[in-house]
Simulated assay, not measured.
Amino acid sequence: MRQIVLDTETTGIDPKKGHRLIEVGCIEIEDLLPTGKTFHHYFNPERLIEPDAIRVHGITDEMVADKPKFADLAQAFIDFVGDAPIIAHNASFDRGFINMELERLGLDPTDPDRWVDTLELARYKFPGMANSLDALCKRYNISLAERDKHGALLDARLLAGVYLELSGGKERGLDLKMHGMVSEDGTEIRVMNHGQRPRPLPSHIHPEEAEAHKAFCLKYLKDQNMWGYTAS
């Protein structure tokens, strides 16, 4: 199934108070695995960015002054997302900003039923625990080494890994390396994990322990074949 993992950065926290999008990062996943297709752009919000927001994502007014407006790329965003379900962490926040920008242009907002909130999934799975994106990455051993500040595409990539884990784990063999993916300033974005576990897992039993176990089974167990042993 095709899904879109999405993250946004904004000028503030409330679209109803006139705050705007300044960055959108989307990653396409198919059956929970990234396909390599992305949508990532910075936008000129046509207003100042609040200092508290800058402290979170590090995006300044000067950095987006020459960027396109959301209106210039709205159709490209709609085409990329298509009718796929949208995965986001604290989805009501991202949905509020996306829908506000679409409605400003007279376009249909996204249906709330399309959105999957990983924060709600995490709270159900880990009640009473910290369930921020950072906390979940640490819990699932997803590296945050490349994450100095929030960034929409990088956070979407991290969230794709978290969503995989919340949906059943690395048994699907997700490779979180971002081969060939770069941010708009040309910097390569990489998220690393330790790869898929080998199968079967290597044994850590000492040879003497293995022989002792075999001797015990042959002496005391009636069903010796249960352990794969047969008397000589």
Results as ranks from 00 to 15, higher is better:
residue 228 G to V: 02
residue 60 T to L: 09
residue 123 R to Q: 15
residue 10 T to A: 10
residue 30 E to H: 08
residue 110 T to W: 11
residue 137 C to I: 07
residue 202 P to A: 06
residue 16 K to E: 15
residue 181 M to R: 07
residue 72 D to F: 01
residue 127 P to F: 07
residue 84 A to Y: 03
residue 41 H to I: 01
residue 219 K to V: 00
residue 213 H to F: 13
residue 57 H to S: 09
residue 204 H to T: 14
residue 182 V to K: 15
residue 104 R to Q: 14
residue 98 I to Q: 06
residue 9 E to P: 08
residue 57 H to C: 10
residue 27 I to P: 00
residue 158 L to G: 04
residue 10 T to I: 07
residue 225 N to C: 01
residue 87 I to S: 07
residue 15 P to F: 04
residue 33 L to K: 05
residue 15 P to Y: 09
residue 166 L to G: 06
residue 168 G to L: 02
residue 190 R to F: 06
residue 129 M to A: 15
residue 47 R to H: 02
residue 105 L to K: 02
residue 150 H to Y: 10
residue 61 D to W: 03
residue 99 N to P: 07
residue 122 A to P: 05
residue 57 H to W: 11
residue 160 A to C: 02
residue 117 D to F: 07
residue 17 K to V: 07
residue 49 I to S: 04
residue 9 E to T: 07
residue 114 R to A: 12
residue 38 T to R: 07
residue 76 A to L: 02
residue 221 L to W: 14
residue 186 G to N: 04
residue 2 R to M: 06
residue 170 K to N: 13
residue 203 S to P: 01
residue 43 F to M: 03
residue 71 A to E: 12
residue 216 F to P: 00
residue 189 I to M: 14
residue 143 S to T: 13
residue 165 E to Q: 15
residue 46 E to C: 09
residue 211 E to T: 07
residue 64 V to P: 01
residue 138 K to C: 03
residue 58 G to D: 11
residue 223 D to N: 14
residue 20 R to S: 09
residue 119 L to D: 04
residue 10 T to V: 07
residue 114 R to H: 05
residue 125 K to S: 14
residue 72 D to K: 03
residue 204 H to D: 13
residue 53 A to I: 10
residue 24 V to G: 02
residue 218 L to I: 05
residue 192 M to G: 00
residue 34 P to R: 02
residue 113 D to I: 10
residue 90 N to V: 09
residue 30 E to Q: 11
residue 84 A to E: 04
residue 210 A to T: 08
residue 9 E to Y: 09
residue 24 V to H: 01
residue 1 M to N: 09
residue 30 E to C: 06
residue 177 K to Q: 11
residue 145 A to C: 01
residue 6 L to N: 08
residue 142 I to T: 06
residue 87 I to N: 06
residue 86 I to N: 07
residue 1 M to R: 12
residue 150 H to W: 09
residue 68 P to L: 07
residue 32 L to R: 12
residue 122 A to M: 09
residue 133 L to E: 11
residue 3 Q to N: 01
residue 42 Y to Q: 03
residue 228 G to Y: 05
residue 119 L to C: 09
residue 2 R to Y: 05
residue 129 M to V: 12
residue 205 I to L: 15
residue 29 I to D: 00
residue 21 L to R: 04
residue 178 M to I: 03
residue 82 G to K: 05
residue 151 G to I: 00
residue 55 R to T: 15
residue 218 L to T: 02
residue 131 N to P: 03
residue 224 Q to L: 09
residue 158 L to F: 04
residue 10 T to H: 08
residue 171 E to P: 00
residue 67 K to N: 03
residue 152 A to Q: 07
residue 116 V to N: 04
residue 151 G to E: 12
residue 87 I to A: 08
residue 164 L to I: 13
residue 102 L to F: 12
residue 126 F to Q: 04
residue 120 E to F: 08
residue 212 A to M: 13
residue 176 L to M: 14
residue 28 E to R: 04
residue 121 L to D: 13
residue 18 G to K: 10
residue 192 M to T: 09
residue 130 A to M: 09
residue 121 L to V: 11
residue 128 G to S: 06
residue 18 G to M: 11
residue 158 L to S: 03
residue 73 L to A: 01
residue 166 L to H: 09
residue 160 A to K: 01
residue 156 A to R: 06
residue 48 L to W: 00
residue 23 E to M: 05
residue 163 Y to M: 10
residue 213 H to A: 08
